[in-house]
């Protein structure tokens, strides 16, 4: 069947078996292998991408069901020569080891920072009444959908916290 999706700003027309997931469309059809397959069952987060600005597990999404959607993958965030601030922070803070879960971590982190800015609460938020403060514990809970078997968690959170602080500083300067 015919499916049209916009990937990192470029419209892509695909002819697909209806069984093809967004993840496999990216990896097998478009050669965008930055999005990783860790479990194929929504249990690890390595395949996290943004669909219409929100993070999802691309392994549990049929491409057909996302006809017309806007997709952002790790390739759309930055390049080795021109890295996104989160990508730079992950390198500086060693927020990875083998690197396989890393694109998913970074996509998840980007979405997470936006969610927090929009006031989304989490399971560990002390109150649901107020906008959350992104403490280390808050980041940990919000990033718990991205497994890292190398267990780079402490430094992944440090990297994210660095970008959080930079964004807060920019916001304050603007105010």
């Amino acid at each position: 069947m015919d499916v049209t999706i916009t990937v990192n700003g470029t419209e892509r027309k695909l002819e697909l078996d209806p069984r093809v997931t967004l993840l496999d469309a990216l990896r097998h059809e478009l050669g965008l292998t930055g999005t990783k397959k860790g479990c194929d069952h929504g249990q690890c987060g390595a395949c996290t991408i943004l669909v219409n600005g929100r993070r999802i597990n691309s392994c549990l999404a049929l491409a057909a069901s996302h006809d017309g959607d806007e997709i952002t993958t790790i390739e759309g965030l930055g390049t080795p020569e021109n890295m996104h601030p989160l990508q730079t922070a992950f390198v500086t803070h060693d927020g990875y080891q083998c690197g396989y879960c890393t694109p998913g971590q970074i996509m998840s982190a980007e979405a997470m920072l936006r969610e927090a800015a929009e006031g989304w609460p989490s399971y560990v938020s002390k109150t649901l009444d107020a906008d959350p403060t992104l403490t280390d514990e808050e980041i940990a809970e919000r990033m718990s959908g991205n497994l890292c078997r190398c267990s780079a968690y402490p430094r992944i959170r440090e990297a994210i916290a660095a970008v959080r602080d930079a964004r807060n500083a920019t916001k304050e300067a603007a105010e």
Partner: peptide, 23 residues
């Protein structure tokens, strides 16, 4: 939901992950 049905909000937030809850 957050203001008047916090038990529901909390239950949802305890389940799965943001990626899964977004879908």
């Amino acid at each position: 939901v957050r203001a008047h049905y916090p038990v529901l909000s909390r239950a949802l937030l305890s389940g799965a992950t943001v990626q899964l809850r977004n879908k």
